[in-house]
């Protein structure tokens, strides 16, 4: 009896906590479907008339659609580069005899503790000097670098999980080291590679400080900056902002929720070293 009651209590508490967690998002979702005129009149809390005019407004707004294109391109390229460079570095850290392996790993991971504000001014001066301000490259290279510590760390953990015997067989067949990594280890570690890619892509998609500093126009502006600078002519256009928030959240949401098992496995293996 006591057991059943305590389980019911736990279920109820969980349901309440989940509702509280989802509330800000659900409210934004409801708001995005309300006509602008109905927004500030509460109650009713649910839309009386469902409307997609907010979505129509933000999707034809060039700032947001170009930002979606910029974000997709920049984050995709940076993530793929990080996976490539990261896999190369993870191989010796996981498999080859290397003096001071622990120190190398600690040093690479330690880079992720640096506050971005400490990097932003020298990077800004360098980007200005090279004439790269407001280009994709000005964000791709920093995003690649900021992703690398986590990528190397996660891929090292994933590569370690591949049984050594597979590798030995390939070596006896005369496969080069690069061949072993490319043809044997990476295909076997593909799920790890994929979950790392998802995590890194979402982090890059959401990055704000560098994006705000290194972009100036629609040529390179990413979605968090476009959303932060979303124009309001007279008053704050809450309905448009809500629709824009939902639109820019869809890619990371779909990735994280769609692949949440893989993301969780990657994260716990990477951070806690075990699963």
């Amino acid at each position: 009896m006591g057991r059943r009651r305590s389980r019911l209590f736990a279920d109820l508490t969980l349901a309440l906590l989940l509702a509280a967690t989802a509330l800000p998002f659900l409210w934004q979702l409801l708001t995005s479907f309300k006509p602008e005129a109905d927004l500030l009149r509460l109650p009713p809390f649910l839309p009386e008339r469902w409307s997609i005019e907010n979505y129509a407004t933000v999707l034809v707004h060039p700032g947001l659609s170009l930002a979606l294109l910029n974000s997709t391109g920049i984050c995709l390229i940076a993530t793929l580069l990080a996976l490539g460079v990261g896999a190369l570095a993870a191989y010796p850290l996981a498999r080859l005899p290397l003096r001071g392996r622990g120190l190398w790993l600690a040093g690479i991971l330690g880079a992720s503790l640096l506050p971005v504000i400490a990097l932003v001014s020298p990077l800004y001066l360098g980007i200005r000097l090279l004439g790269l301000r407001d280009t994709w490259l000005a964000l791709i290279v920093p995003y690649l670098a900021l992703s690398l510590p986590l990528t190397v760390w996660l891929l090292t953990a994933f590569l370690r999980e591949v049984p050594r015997e597979v590798e030995e067989a390939a070596r006896l067949d005369g496969c080069s080291r690069f061949g072993i990594l490319w043809r044997i280890l990476l295909p076997l570690a593909a799920p790890g590679l994929f979950s790392t890619g998802v995590i890194v892509f979402v982090f890059n998609w959401n990055e704000f400080l560098l994006a705000l500093t290194f972009t100036a126009t629609d040529a390179s502006r990413t979605v968090p900056v476009a959303l932060a600078l979303f124009p309001g002519i007279h008053e704050i256009p809450w309905g448009d902002l809500a629709a824009a928030s939902i639109v820019v959240s869809l890619p990371p949401l779909a990735l994280i929720l769609g692949f949440h098992r893989w993301v969780i496995r990657g994260l716990t293996l990477g951070v806690l070293g075990r699963r």
Partner: peptide, 17 residues
């Protein structure tokens, strides 16, 4: 998945919400 939702969102979106 439900509890994970806010973590996927950009900080700017959280601020706007």
């Amino acid at each position: 998945a439900g509890f994970l939702l806010p973590w996927a969102l950009p900080g700017v979106v959280s601020a706007k919400m």
